[in-house]
């Protein structure tokens, strides 16, 4: 019986750093239209934060506190991407045709809203699901 390891420092740093990583991933996701970022890299950064949680704690605790089936998440992301890509075909345009406009929102002032964000949400879901599924299935080597 191995002695129980003491990793108080790792748990404390993880609880702080995971919040920063998730916030940064959301910022990368929203910056993706005119600046570096987008759905793919935002999803990868979110996956990095979840992997940090998996590394610091164990699989069962994360699964009870964050009950997400990542295979279904990847499939849902691909479905969202294809469905929003076909949205342009309804109006007689090409596949993946996008539209944007400038709206006067109450708090933000004049903002640009684009339909490419919906496609990016699907891409982010697919990337998160695929990355976490690969990493958790690689880690189960002796089961």
């Amino acid at each position: 019986m191995k002695p129980k390891p003491n990793d108080v420092i790792l748990h404390t740093v993880t609880k702080l750093a995971a919040v920063i990583i998730f916030t940064f991933s959301i910022d990368l996701f929203w910056a993706g239209h005119h600046f570096p970022g987008g759905g793919f890299i935002g999803g990868l950064t979110t996956a990095a934060g979840i992997v940090l949680l998996y590394l610091s704690f164990d699989i069962e605790r994360i699964q009870t506190n964050l009950p997400i089936d990542y295979k279904k998440m990847a499939a849902l992301g691909v479905l969202i991407s294809v469905a929003t890509g076909m949205g342009g075909m309804i109006y007689g345009d090409n596949f993946l045709e996008q539209a944007f406009g400038y709206f006067d929102l109450p708090v933000f002032g004049e903002t640009e809203l684009a339909t490419a964000v919906l496609f990016d949400i699907g891409v982010a879901f697919a990337v998160i699901g695929t990355a976490i599924t690969i990493i958790t299935s690689i880690s189960e080597d002796e089961l």
Binding site: P5, L10, I21, L55, I59, E140
Partner: peptide
Amino acid sequence: ILSFIGTIAFARFIERGVVIERK
């Protein structure tokens, strides 16, 4: 962020022999 996570993963592997524990 990636360097931090990589270092933690290597440290877990050296300390315990597994990277992600099941229980």
